[in-house]
Design a protein around this nucleic acid. Structure first.
Lengths: 217, 217
DNA sequence: TTCCGCGGACGACAAAAGTCACAGACCGGC
DNA sequence: GCCGGTCTGTGACTTTTGTCGTCCGCGGAA
């Protein structure tokens, strides 16, 4: 479904949007904007971004990942300033969209408004699921889920499932701390589910790992 | 801001919506629908509803409260089946909205589409804030926040702040269990912040309680 | 080469949350 | 009154998470 948002817009508009914006490259690990920043609408052309929220104590929780052809900053178009931060996990190419153009179009063209509403409701759905996972799942379950999620976007040479991520990043992702993640990974390793190396977690047993995941109902 | 959604729609449409639907009364404690149910669009005419998610083990977490002139089931109009449950906390009057009429209008009338998008983004915002609170806050902080939230919607005879809620409901609300909530309430009581009785929590010191709350940044 | 800094592995301990078990207060119905 | 239901209060214990401190290995900068 990624990319369906722009795809759902009338060609004429996407044409104008793509003509009006600018490309820019960002190395891995750069912070696009933080909580409270003036919002921007951005299309992901290449790479992988992380949308997160952070606590005053420095802990973080990722809200979602943005992949190729995702659009960032949609909710913000409609509402106020950003309440999330965005950072690149991999080298990424972004395309800045003219926010004024998009909102103006949404206000006058029902197809655009509807596309916006669809995209927002998808995110709301996803967010609610995440809420349940965070509320009911253990760190262990969240780590398992996150590894699978990450690995599914980073295919390696052979069909291996690999999540290229440090323990610290993983901890930030699931709203915990490094030491706890380390413990969980040790357990997974001992159970033969994963193999770990610096900045990488090889998933040896995807279904076994999936069993560690939290599922609703 | 509650009610701004319908208020944002063109009169002509709200007229048609109100002509097409039906009213119904529900006593406190009834369940409107559960996770997975066929979705419905519903306007709250009177009362207080709770939108929640539940875990297989029976724990719950409330996603939001719906008050007078809120509309339920918007996200669901656009996406798939409901992934939340809805229950009445007080006797409520609901007005069933013709979902087909609303979606059809959204697809053709840009004002409606935009109103939908605005409402959805508001909810997304609120949901994200909630995500942070759940992820970073302690049960203690969540209970404090919830009490204040509830009390703000239930004004009592004199200016007293009262939350009419049982410990079990409170626990479900914040994604914890009764015993833990009881402990927290005891601490609040001993600190002179609240007074408790069956099904009621009197808030004696709102600002003191607010200090127990989690705040971003 | 040496010295950091980063990522990682652990162990010990503290704090927060959840579980279990049980008891008392209150209320409506029989 | 007596009974069952609901709501509450609380102690004791376990599990999960978070914190602190230490140590190791590696790779780049000086």
């Amino acid at each position: 479904m990624a990319g369906s948002f722009l795809g759902g817009l009338p060609e004429e508009l996407t044409g104008r949007l793509l003509a009006s914006g600018r490309r820019a490259d960002y190395p891995a690990g750069s912070t696009l904007y933080r909580e409270g920043a003036a919002p921007q609408a951005v299309l992901v052309v290449r790479g992988l971004l992380r949308v997160y929220m952070s606590s005053p104590e420095g802990r973080q929780v990722t809200v979602r990942y943005a992949r190729v052809s995702d659009v960032l900053g949609i909710a913000v178009l409609v509402g106020g300033p950003a309440n999330v931060g965005v950072q690149t996990l991999a080298g990424s190419t972004l395309f800045r969209i003219d926010a004024g153009l998009l909102t103006a179009a949404a206000r006058t063209d029902s197809r655009v408004g509807w596309a916006l509403a669809e995209e927002l409701s998808r995110r709301l759905y996803e967010n609610l699921r995440q809420t349940a996972v965070n509320a009911f799942g253990t760190v262990r379950q969240r780590v398992a889920a996150h590894l699978l999620d990450l690995a599914s976007t980073q295919q390696s040479p052979r069909g291996e499932l690999v999540a290229q991520v440090s323990q610290q990043e993983l901890a930030d992702a699931v709203g915990s701390v490094r030491e706890v993640v380390a413990r969980v990974l040790r357990e997974f390793r001992q159970a033969g589910l994963v193999a770990t190396a610096a900045d990488t977690v090889h998933i040896l047993d995807p279904t076994g790992l999936h069993d560690q995941t939290w599922n609703p109902e």
